[in-house]
Simulated assay, not measured.
Amino acid sequence: MPRSIEEKLRVEPLTSSHDRSEFESGVEPLDRYFRTQAGQDARKNMAAPFVLVLLDATIAGYYTLSATSVQLGELPAQTVRKLPRYPLVPATLLGRLAVDRRHQGKGYGRFLLADALHRATRSEIASFAVIVDAKNESARRFYERESFLPFPDRPMKLFRPMADIRRLFD
């Protein structure tokens, strides 16, 4: 993405002043969540929604972050070998990520993902990886292109180790 475009983009926590009524990604559950549930989840500390706001105050996309955990046995064997033998390991859940249809194809999805990963590395809470549950095959392929690895028995659930993510920002 050209630097001039990046300078015009702003990602900020969702507030009641953001107009979510016109947002439409083309994935109905993501749109419904954003319009009706995201604000409540933020107020109740269930998820931290962030919005990509353009210069005209239009919301071009959003994502949510929250804490989660993963059962050690769910992870690939080569990953488990590197971890302590706790039954659960802490992780960060990238619960939702969507770009408004009018702004798809402009690199905003990757921009939002990079912002989410960067925020996850800055957290003072321990997290072994960022976890995503891809909503469809297209989303799964997007995350795989961004170096996320599938869980062995659940190909729509993917993760990227935090050590790998930190190297992106060093």
Rank of each mutant, 00 (worst) to 15 (best):
E144T: 11
K44W: 06
R110Y: 09
V130M: 11
I59W: 01
R154D: 15
S21L: 06
E24N: 14
G105N: 04
Y143A: 04
R122V: 06
T58I: 04
P13Q: 11
S147T: 15
A134Q: 09
S17N: 09
R32G: 07
F23D: 02
R110G: 15
K82S: 14
G109C: 01
Y62R: 03
R102N: 12
S123K: 02
A77H: 09
P76H: 04
S123P: 00
A116Q: 08
R81L: 15
A116F: 03
F23N: 00
L93M: 15
R32L: 14
P155Q: 08
L54D: 02
S123E: 14
E74A: 15
K82N: 02
L149A: 11
V80Y: 00
G105R: 12
P90Q: 09
V70R: 01
V53C: 07
P49S: 11
D56E: 07
A38P: 02
Y33G: 01
T79A: 05
T15S: 13
E146L: 14
T68N: 10
V70D: 01
T121V: 15
V70S: 04
L72Q: 11
A67T: 15
A91G: 11
R154T: 13
Q104K: 08
Q104W: 05
R154Q: 10
P49G: 09
Q37G: 06
P2M: 14
H118P: 00
A116G: 11
Y33T: 05
F128L: 15
E74V: 07
M162I: 12
D133Q: 13
A47R: 01
S66T: 15
L30P: 12
I59V: 12
V130C: 12
R110A: 15
A91L: 04
A77F: 06
F111G: 05
H18G: 01
S66V: 01
E24S: 12
L112Q: 01
K8L: 13
R101L: 10
R35N: 05
T58Q: 10
V132H: 02
H18W: 03
E24R: 11
Q104T: 04
T58E: 07
T36A: 13
Q37R: 15
Y62K: 08
R32H: 11
A98Q: 10
I125E: 13
L112N: 03
R145G: 02
L94V: 10
D170K: 13
P84I: 12
R102K: 10
L113C: 04
A47D: 00
T121D: 08
F23C: 00
P155R: 02
